[in-house]
Design a protein around this nucleic acid. Structure first.
Lengths: 234, 234
DNA sequence: CCAAAAGTGTTTTCTCTACACCCATGT
DNA sequence: ACATGGGTGTAGAGAAAACACTTTTGG
């Protein structure tokens, strides 16, 4: 039979991933960017992207792109927005759905992404990006700031064990403003989601700082009972 | 030349509109649904939708669908989410971007949408919807609750002139919980965004209730200077 | 005069903010 | 002994919540 929807046009559909990482030492939020390896715009900086295949859902496509670049799966990822201007890609009319992902830089083997032409770049020092990718990044940043206050996703950017100072620095990097140390610690600890370890981080100070670990199970229990994560402090 | 992106598949792309209205008399949030006029799922309830055309952006497609159904333009509309499961539409693989819109029921000529097979249905009494449209509605509802607290969009669902009681009823219908009358009035009036009219609404009470009007211009000015709309009251 | 809906302030509670000094340790 | 970064508590301000009676007027 002729197709039910014949008469309607079809379109290329891409996914683009805004991949955030956090550099503990430099206290900086970073983005994983790639040098584009095909035309148009070959050689320019771009987000990691790819085309949605026949038998592949949007989410699967995004996971595939992310995974093939990083070698990691089970990362935090969320759909952000779909960009559908007719002229957004000069090569053809391509609709693109942007996803943003959070990954711990430390989890990533440098060889894996290097060979794909990927590099971490500081948010504060981004190169020009192709097409509307800069808009995507800006939207993702806004979303990240909103999300991080209201859901415990910041931990995705840190190693399993982290210190409160590191966590605060992360929040300061994301929200781009200083946070009061005592208020921050009071609030995060009062939520009862962090388990103190018997071990200290000793690289950055003589006294050493206690390691903590995010207890995801406890969070899920609490959330089930109407608890809301909230880390909006100044 | 052969196409730059040849080798990659193309997909049908639809837009679906979650169209909210508010019935002042019944104090109920409603959805504009249509009886589907083509296969598959002919005759079943569905959101208003349509296919994205060649030379049409996503936003334009959504506006076209909305406008052709209601005869109205310049409505409040926002992209919600893109649904990309491969089997979401049994007729073919169709990716769909959902938009949600807010319209004043009173603005709508009944003939215009009736002849398109569209009907208002109370949120609390929705029929079964085709495909994943129910998921779209649920997401839109969550989004509406969030948005209405933090941006002055509730007014889009009311006539230009409205009473504080009507506004409160609207908020109660959206948030699905009772709100304290005095706290609500205190808060909304303290924002200085409503202009009291010299006229009363006299249908629903003997005493009559003052009409107010939302001053959008003042809102924009204030927002420019860092003001944030916030109507989170209990 | 009474039923029905509109309108109005104050007190209490809690959350958010501001703020400064001691601690532990490696050199 | 000192320099460096980690850790701690309290008081005041402001926002959110709880709460009950008076006003108006058509019938």
């Amino acid at each position: 039979m002729t197709h039910l929807y014949s008469g309607h046009p079809k379109h290329f559909h891409a996914v683009d991933c805004i991949i955030f990482g956090y550099d503990i030492a430099e206290r900086e939020l970073k983005l994983l960017l790639i040098k584009r390896s095909f035309e148009p715009a070959l050689g320019q900086w771009s987000l990691a992207g790819g085309f949605v295949q026949e038998e592949e859902s949007l989410d699967d496509a995004a996971c595939r792109v992310l995974c093939s670049l990083t070698g990691l799966s089970d990362l935090y990822m969320e759909q952000l927005y779909t960009y559908g201007a007719t002229d957004r890609d000069p090569g053809a009319r391509v609709i693109s759905t942007a996803y943003f992902a959070l990954i711990g830089i430390h989890e990533l083997e440098p060889e894996i992404h290097r060979k794909n032409g990927a590099h971490w770049r500081a948010i504060s020092d981004l190169p020009d990006l192709i097409f509307d990718h800069r808009m995507m990044v800006d939207r993702a940043l806004l979303e990240l700031v909103k999300t991080v206050r209201v859901r415990p996703v910041g931990f995705e950017l840190l190693p399993e064990k982290f210190t409160l100072v590191q966590l605060q620095n992360l929040y300061e990097a994301i929200c781009q403003r200083p946070i009061d140390k005592r208020n921050f610690r009071k609030k995060i600890l009062s939520m009862n989601l962090l388990d103190k370890q018997d071990e200290k981080e000793r690289e950055t100070s003589k006294k050493g700082a206690w390691y903590y670990r995010f207890n995801e199970e406890r969070y899920r229990e609490l959330a089930m009972n109407g608890f809301f994560f909230n880390l909006a402090v100044s």
